[in-house]
Each structure stands twice: as C-alpha cells, then as structure tokens.
C-alpha cells in the first residue's frame, strides 16, 4: 500500500487536477451569468494546440501562452456573439464548438506539423517550473507544493481571487445579478449583456489557458483529442460546487486524485478499467449533489 499512497500520489493529484481547475474557474463565471458553456472541452483543445504552435515557432513558452490567451478571447467573443447576440441554442453551439475544435486541431496538426496523432519536438519550450523559496526545504510540504509549473500556482491564486471577486466585490454582485435577475441590474443602470460578454471572454481565456497547461505544462506535446473530456469534467465540478470557486476546486482535486490513483494502480488493474474511474466518479458526483439538494429542500 505504501507504494501507492505516498506524497507522490498527492503531487500527481495536484498536477492532473490543474487543467480541470482552470477550466472550471472559467466555466463557473459563465454559470453565474446563466450561460451554460458545454464548449469548454473544445476551447481547451484549441488552446492546447495554439500554445504548442506559439512555443514551437517563437521558441518561448510566453508566446505559446499568449497565443492561447488570444484564442481564448476570440472563442469567448464568438461564443458570446452567437449565444447572446444571435440567441442560438447554447447546447448546439457548445457541441458544434467541440467538433469544430477536434477538426481544426487535427487539420492544422497535419498541415502545419505534417504529423498524425501527436506532435512533440525538442524545440518545444515548456512552461517554467517554479521552486518556492522557503517551502521547498520543508520535507513533505516542499515536495508537495514546490516544483510545479507556473500555471499550477496561477490556478490556486485564481481560486481565491475569483471567490473574493464573486462574493465580496460590487462587480461580483453585478455578475451574479446578470444571471439571476438581469432586470434588477438593468434598473441599476448596468448592462447584463456586458457582464455576460466579460464572463464569456474570461471563460474562453481560462479554458484555453487550461489547454496550454495540458500541452506545455502537464505534458510537452500536442496529441489529437488530448483534452479527453476534461472540459466536461470541469463542467460537472462547477455543477457540483454550485459555482463556489472553493468547492469547485475541491471537486476538481477529487477528480485529480482519482485520475492519479488510476495511474498508480495500473500495475495491479488493467489500465482501461482504471481510466474509467474519473468519469464514473463524476457521474456519482452529479447524483450526490442532486440528492443532497433535494434533502435540503425537504428540511
């Protein structure tokens, strides 16, 4: 058992939870303005691809990240224009976005890099690893908290920042109002549409940054369909946490833990079976949250 349950397991948990955390932070913003963004998975995929593209051609991780953020802004605006301006069905746009992303990234992978399946190259510059100055020397804690890539720390900071933003600032109240009761916001002389636009663009950026973390932080490569439904998992985490960044973060950590545990158990159980676990846990999570809410309503 000691081989499976040790500090490394927790470290892997933090690593594999990060893309989900980042994407979920974006998703919860759209959830608060009452937009359901199913397309996060596709946005992650596009972000992952363009991060690799930028890193490869400009020889810097910052360029990769920048390109991913640019894609995020464009995708967020696209989503906003189609869903709010044109009043399209969010579900259809989201699903179509995912298929579009799958097609686009594979098409570009094969035309730009001339490879099938996956692209990795020594010229790819990964995200920098950060060693925390004091904590790194503390035995267990140092191993656990230090030495992650940049975006891991960014994601932790984001959880706190978003929590403070959503629940403690006037702008956060406006954001929630634009989802819960837009008429009230209009009465205050604020525009719910602007809030929705902001949330949608922020969601695009975060989803693409999550993708960048997948392809430049978690791994240093781009593979076809590498987001592997993580965008949907992020969505489920948001539902589970009802939009509260702290609870959403915990849900994402749970996903990461199951994922990491599955990787560890591969020596004992066939990997195809362990790979199922995070997805089944997500289903269970969805059921639990619904039952929990029903019980609350009854009492």
């Amino acid at each position: 058992m000691g081989e499976i349950f040790n500090v490394l397991l927790l470290q892997t948990t933090l690593r594999s939870a990060t893309p989900v955390v980042l994407a979920a932070m974006g998703c919860l913003l759209t959830q608060h303005v009452n937009m359901t963004n199913i397309g996060i998975d596709g946005m992650m995929l596009i972000g992952a691809f363009f991060a690799v593209l930028g890193s490869y051609f400009f020889g810097s991780w910052a360029a990769g990240l920048g390109l991913a953020i640019l894609c995020g802004i464009l995708l967020g605006l696209f989503y906003y224009v189609f869903v709010i301006k044109f009043g399209s069905d969010e579900f259809i746009i989201g699903v179509a976005l995912n298929i579009f992303a799958g097609g686009l990234t594979v098409f570009l992978l094969r035309t730009v890099f001339q490879v099938k399946g996956a692209f990795s190259d020594p010229a790819l510059v990964p995200l920098p690893t950060i060693h925390l100055p004091l904590i790194r020397h503390i035995p267990v804690l140092g191993q656990l908290l230090s030495g992650h890539t940049l975006l891991v720390y960014v994601s932790w900071a984001l959880v706190l920042i978003l929590w403070a933003f959503i629940y403690k600032t006037p702008a956060g109240v406006h954001l929630r109002a634009s989802g819960e009761y837009p008429a009230a916001l209009t009465a205050c002389g604020k525009s719910p549409e602007k809030m929705k636009c902001f949330a949608s663009v922020a969601c695009g950026i975060l989803a693409c940054v999550a993708g960048a973390h997948l392809s430049l932080g978690y791994l240093t490569m781009f593979a076809e369909n590498m987001s592997a439904s993580r965008g949907y998992v992020a969505f489920a985490c948001v539902i589970f946490g009802r939009g509260n960044p702290l609870i959403v973060f915990l849900a994402a950590l749970l996903f990461g833990f199951i994922d990491a545990l599955g990787l560890r158990l591969q020596n004992y159980i066939p990997s195809d079976l362990t790979a199922m676990a995070p997805y089944l846990v997500t289903v269970v999570m969805m059921v639990v949250v619904v039952l929990w809410e029903r019980r609350k309503k009854k009492s």
Binding site: F82, K85, F86, G87, S88, D89, I92, I93, A96, L97, I99, F100, G102, G103, L104, V106, F107, R110, T111
Partner: peptide, 26 residues
C-alpha cells in the same frame, strides 16, 4: 488534404444554422 477539413465545414454549417434565426432578426 486532411479529411478533418470536412469536420470544419460541417461545424460551420451548424454554427450558421444555430444562429440562423438570430442573424435573420438582426
């Protein structure tokens, strides 16, 4: 030409059709 081009063409059709009513009104 990678056949994924077709996926792009198909999803563009869907984007337009989903927004069709909105575009027409605007």
């Amino acid at each position: 030409i990678p056949s994924e081009l077709i996926l792009i063409v198909q999803s563009v059709i869907i984007f337009f059709m989903a927004a069709e009513g909105g575009i027409r009104t605007s």
